[in-house]
Design a protein around this nucleic acid. Structure first.
Lengths: 163, 163
DNA sequence: GGCGGGAGCTTGCTGGCGCAACTGTTGTCG
DNA sequence: CGACAACAGTTGCGCCAGCAAGCTCCCGCC
């Protein structure tokens, strides 16, 4: 008892028809959507994970981010990021660098090869996102989609840092 | 070059601001949302994967489905399903059964324990879905969410069975 | 000023899943 | 009828990611 989920045990407010449709469609779609993006990216020798790393690094001030910050943005555990970077370092896209300011910190820095890989893949990836997702929606749906996921994302973030 | 994605290489139609917002919010949210559901389900000793198996079996005619049909609905590879069922059989929620009609086929059948596990978890899971997702949206947003993901899902299905 | 708590990263272990290869079964076509 | 393609499921292998433990290093507090 007193779980975060309980309180509903008394009276489970089920989903109405519309909610049900939204939920089922979402659950059944999300996985396939992800693998569709992954498949399209293999052409460039990248995974979605790799691609996101490249994007975040390319947007960072010195093309570099602290591991922990990067991990948070990628929603990845520390160990997960360590290993993903292992691969990307070996591929030559990223360089590890010790921070001068805080010697605990490891910086992940985008290499020229990494920037090139991103530039090569970006058009294809955007096209993929359009083809599978964006271009299937009208302006209004895109607008609402943004609202939905910022709202949900905010909610999740709010909950997780209460403790 | 000569990729399936190409045709866009000539002129990469980038995402406008709204599309960008929708896409980023989506990507950054989806993972956390999934793990939120998973965390809430651990309370009942289930994963999202287990839960979905239970749901689909409980909705099937004889509380049973062919492995391949189940795999398709779960968007899971054959081997993936084999192993997931291994766990669920050991947990006593599902029974394997040879089909009389087609001896290649293995049926996955819901046990009474499985039905009970589902009934126990369902209210909490629905509450979780409400808390993290549905109740953060208004009626219209829910409506549009259903539209979005049925449209995208249809698109994905259409593409994948062209070959 | 040094000491304890906590932050940041890595490593060993484990579990889940996809791919490819294999077995057994069915269906089809000459 | 007999051969061959296609289908259903399982198994070996490898990859990726999370958790827990361990190391180094920072910082606040006595």
């Amino acid at each position: 008892m007193m779980s975060s989920v309980s309180g509903s045990e008394s009276k489970p407010r089920w989903l109405d028809e519309n909610e049900q449709r939204a939920w089922r469609a979402y659950v059944e779609c999300v996985g396939d959507l992800f693998t569709a993006f992954e498949n399209d990216l293999t052409e460039f020798g990248l995974t979605m994970g790799d691609y996101q790393v490249l994007v975040y690094l390319s947007e960072a001030d010195d093309q570099a981010l602290r591991m922990c910050d990067l991990a948070r943005r990628l929603q990845l555990s520390p160990s997960g990021l360590t290993r993903r970077l292992d691969g990307m370092v070996k591929a030559g896209w990223v360089r590890r660098q010790n921070s001068q300011i805080d010697r605990r910190v490891m910086l992940a820095e985008l290499t020229d090869a990494g920037r090139t890989a991103l530039d090569d893949a970006a058009p294809g990836h955007v096209a993929s996102v359009r083809r599978h997702l964006i271009d299937r929606l009208d302006r209004h749906q895109v607008q609402v989609m943004a609202e939905i996921f910022t709202a949900v994302g905010d909610g999740l973030r709010k909950e997780s840092d209460v403790p």
